[in-house]
Each structure stands twice: as C-alpha cells, then as structure tokens.
Design a protein around this nucleic acid. Structure first.
Length: 509
RNA sequence: GCGCUUGUAGCUCAGGGGUAGAGCACUCGGCUUUUAACCGAUUGGUCGUGCGUUCAAAUCGCACCAGGCGCACCA
C-alpha cells in the first residue's frame, strides 16, 4: 500500500485507480479498528422472508420489530440514505436516517462502496413511497470489495449488468451478481437434476458412479479426450458415455441403476455443444424400449412441471407443448411422410442399387459416405426430418447398422428396438431395448472395430471385458440416455448451452 | 476446421487518415430529508496485439489473439 501511494496516478490504469480508491477506504476501515473481513454473521431474516412477512404493512407504517439481514450492496441513493441490499433470496432496502444514526456510523457510511457485503440491524418500516425498508441502527462490514461491479445504462436508467457476453461467461461470478436470469437458470438446472434423481430414486433406482478415466472410451460414437497416467505409464481416455459400465452393473445384479454425470467429447463448440456436458443414463432390468418411452415422457413432464409450473413452455418464440401425449412414430414412417420415400421394402437391399433408384436420387442428398442402406436411412432422416420435429416426438426403430448396442427389432429385420426423443429439432434422449446377446454384440462391435481400423475415428471401440460381462448374462434390459444440458436449455428457454453451464469451456485469453 | 462479424475509459457506446469523445460510474465540492435524487468541478484511454502503407493510422492493408453468429462435426 505504501509504495502505491507514492506512485503518480498517471502511471495507473483506470481500473487500478478505482481499486486504489477502495484500498484507501479499506485502510481507513482498518484504522478504525474494524475487521473488514470478519468470520461470521448471524442474521434473522432473508430479504424474501421480510417481503412476505410484511406484505401487509401499509405505506409510512413503522414497526418496532428488530431484524438483522446480510447481503451485497447493489445500489445506494442520496448519500447512503437508501441502500439496495441483495441476498440470494432477493432485495431489501435499508434506510439510514443520518439525523438519528450514531455519529460513528454516519462517518462509516462513506467508506462503503457498491458491491460491498454488509450486515444490518434495524426496525421494519414501509416508506411513504411503499418500499419495505429496514430503518438501520447498526451496520457491519462483512467483506470490503476492491473492484467495482459492472453497471449498464439504458436510456437514462442505470443498473447493474453486463452486455459483453464474453465477460458474462469468463467471469461468471460477475454475471451471477448482476444478471438475475443467469442465476435463475442455474437454479432451475439444479431443480431439474435434483428432480430427475428424486423421480428415479422414488421408483427404486440407485445412482452408481462409474469411471471417468477409461482405457477404452466406449458406449458411443465420438472422439475422446486423451490423457496419461504417470505411475502406470498408460494412455487413458475420458469417458464419452456411461453406458458400458452401467450395463456391467446390471449384469452384477443391480436391476435399476443410473448415473447422472459429466461426459467428455473432443468435438466442436457451438451454442449447442460444450466439450464437457452432462448426461443421465439409466438401465432397468426386465424392461424394454416401450417401458423406457413411458418413463422418459413421465420423467420429463414431471421435471418440467416442477420447474415451470406448466407443461406449455416457450422456446425462443416457439411454443412447445409437453402436455399432449407425445407422438410415437417410426423413423421409416417419418421419412415416408416427409419425403414420400418408403424405405421398408429397401431394407437388406444392395446399397449401391438403392442409391441409384430415381426416388433416392431425387432427394438430392450426398450419400457417398453411406456404406449401407441403414446408414442411408439415418442420413436421409437427419437431412429431411430431424429439424422439423419441434414438438416432443419419439422416433422409433432405427436401422441396425447405426445402432450397434440395440437389440434387433422383434418383428422387422434390419431394424432395432431403439428410439430417440426429439424436441425443437434436437435429439434429447436415446434409448434401446439393450442388446443382451453376447455373440451378436461381439459381432457388431467387431464390425465397428473394422470401421475404426479403416479410419473412422468415431466408430465404437471394442471393449472386450464388456463382451465378457455379457457372456455372464445381461437380463432383458431397457436403457435410456438424456442430454441434460439441452433439456435444461429447453426448459429454461436458454438460447446457448453456455447459459446453462456455470463455467462453459472458453479459450484461454 | 471454414465463412461473416465485433474488439475505443470501470460500464454502455460514438468517431472511419490530421491533438482521443459522450453519458454514467469513481473522487471532490455544493444543495437537499429526500427513492433512476439534483447541480458543479476534477480525474480517467499504448483505440485487442504485431507488422506494414503514409509527412501523419483508432481510422487503410496484412497477420495473429479473443468473442459472437452461421456452416461442418456432433448430443
């Protein structure tokens, strides 16, 4: 501090100047024998509790009820006569009548700054203007801040806030202080994840944590992050799915098991993609994908109602109705509906012959990457149908070539018992009647391994221990995965995945 | 990874070859017993970074860095 005082102001950046001013006040507070960073403070009420409790207090009415509150100063008016104090429940105004205040406190007030955390004791009153206030008798500094909070001006109106979206994500603590909706979104996210766990725990599921560090990153098609374990001197991968370990747990005798947790995929970043994101996967013995559809629909309806108190939710201007029974339709029927092409008779045909059919050529889709009719179907679906599925829709019975972990369809050959849930054109959930036949599973993963060897970085890897587990017997099992971040986006009307992740991945500055 | 676009004071933004601007915030002073208070004064900036063009660059060009949006990949 002492060297700073001798430094000319001209050598300082503005931010340093503002900080120095607060350091000066900090020193002053210390010199008064006050600890600017005390250990504990006991309050009697939160802001919201007071607002509710004194809802019926009339304008200008005063009580003798003494209360103690604590929070952060967001604003001050008329030389500290009015202070807007915020805690995590909301706002309460402090009223400082300097004529009646202890002289020491009057002298202390100018040492405060917006952003400081304080505790206050006083009596409850409603001002003539109708603002519930605490008529202050004591103020305790709880934390002296050194940096000013960001403020924005709209018209002539000034309030706390940040327009710069980069700052909002990089310095999320600031965003949370000054942007009420940011805080609300994360609060809702917590409500959603807690709601999901509650729902599942109540019907007999248990949550078990499976490894993040794996020697084979299996269970999905994605590029993994690679890391290294020093003591073992081996390459390890961050998990891309929880699927294979959870199914091992079902082999081990857990009949209803899930994990809600972080997974990692080494792919692009966008408004809908963060390299680490949260999924829930759950597995239920003796269930099939029809059971999983019922569970998915009921689960999402339940959390939606919890969070929004309604099943009609707007997403970026589009009304989405979660209430009506969700449409259940096969992938082939949807393709037929949107393109007029019926793939059912083409299943099992030679892929080149299929691509040469006039009605396929007319679709004007690049199918050169599709090495099978199944892959062609998936591609046509993605190109022509996916983005149109705005209202909740279960898309059922995917081709076998693109679903290596799903059981063959019980009646239609070439298809599997799988569904994906689409809302707002996004895949929200993915589910199968899990493949339990160890010989079939081995054959399908070996097929994937061939693709991987041929250079497909995203093909499934061959996890031999998983195959071994299946040979010890996986009962009929329904499995389900839900992308939590996108679900939260939908239920909180958030345009970017970064809004629903507290600390989204950013390039270092 | 590609395309478009943005980066100027603590915050929000103007300025687009000729001495770096405004509002608010901060600081100081005045007025006021009051609710975006008001009035006045002073502060405050390597114009994202680097290299170039030019007598002269915040401004023009190129490269790089970071963000946003779109595309690709994907959930």
């Amino acid at each position: 501090m002492s060297t700073k005082e001798t430094t000319p102001h001209t050598d300082h950046h503005e931010s340093t100047r503002l900080r120095d001013e607060r350091l000066r006040k900090l020193e002053k507070i210390k010199s008064l024998g006050i600890d600017p960073y005390p250990y504990k403070f006991t309050r009697t009420h939160k802001a919201k509790e007071l607002q509710e409790k004194y809802q019926h207090l009339e304008n200008s009415q005063e009580t003798t009820d003494s209360v103690t509150v604590a929070g952060r100063i967001h604003n001050e008016r008329n030389d500290w006569m009015f202070i807007d104090l915020y805690d995590d429940s909301g706002k309460i105004q402090l009223y400082c009548d300097k004529e009646k205040l202890d002289q020491k406190l009057v002298e202390f007030l100018p040492l405060l700054d917006k952003g400081d955390q304080i505790g206050a004791v006083g009596t409850v009153r409603r001002t003539p203007r109708g603002e519930l206030s605490i008529k202050v008798t004591e103020i305790t500094i709880l934390c002296k801040t050194l940096l000013p909070l960001p403020e924005i001006i709209e018209g002539k109106r000034r309030h706390l806030g940040i327009h710069d979206i980069e700052t909002r994500y990089r310095q999320r603590y600031l965003d949370l202080i000054v942007t009420p909706t940011s805080k609300e979104t994360l609060r809702k996210r917590a409500l959603i994840t807690a709601g999901i766990r509650n729902y599942l725990n109540n019907i007999g599921y248990i949550e078990i944590e499976t490894p993040v560090l794996q020697t084979e990153a299996g269970g999905a098609e994605a590029k993994p992050f690679v890391t290294h374990h020093n003591a073992l001197d081996i390459e390890l991968f961050l998990r891309i799915a929880t699927e294979l370990h959870l199914k091992r747990l079902v082999v081990g005798g857990f009949e209803k098991v899930y994990e809600l947790g972080r997974i990692f995929r080494n792919e692009g970043i966008s408004t809908r993609h963060n390299p680490e994101f949260t999924s829930i996967e759950l597995y239920e013995a003796y269930a099939d994908y029809h059971d999983m559809m019922n569970l998915t629909e009921d689960l999402i309806k339940t959390v939606c109602k919890n969070v929004n108190e309604t099943l009609q939710v707007e997403f970026q201007g589009k009304p989405i109705d979660y209430e009506k029974p969700w449409k259940r339709v096969t992938m082939l029927d949807l393709i037929k509906e949107h393109t007029g092409v019926d793939f059912a008779p083409l299943l099992g045909k030679n892929v080149k012959e299929v691509h040469d059919l006039p009605q396929i050529k007319n679709l004007k889709i690049n199918l050169s990457e599709c090495g099978s009719v199944g892959e062609t179907i998936a591609e046509v679906f993605e190109e022509k149908v996916e983005s149109k599925l705005i209202q909740p829709t279960f898309v059922m019975d995917h081709p076998i070539e693109t679903s290596p972990l799903a059981k063959k369809h019980r009646t239609t050959s070439g298809l599997t018992e799988r569904f994906e849930l689409f809302i707002n054109g996004w895949e929200i959930a993915n589910s199968f009647s899990e493949l339990t036949d160890p010989l079939d599973q081995r054959a399908r993963l070996e097929e994937q391994a061939k693709k991987k060897d041929a250079g497909d970085e995203e093909a499934h890897s061959l996890d031999l221990d998983f195959i071994t587990a299946l040979e010890y017997g996986l009962p009929p099992t329904g499995g389900l995965g839900i992308g939590i971040d996108r679900l939260v986006m939908l239920l909180t009307n958030s345009a970017s995945i970064r809004d629903v992740i507290a600390f989204p991945t950013m390039k270092p500055v």
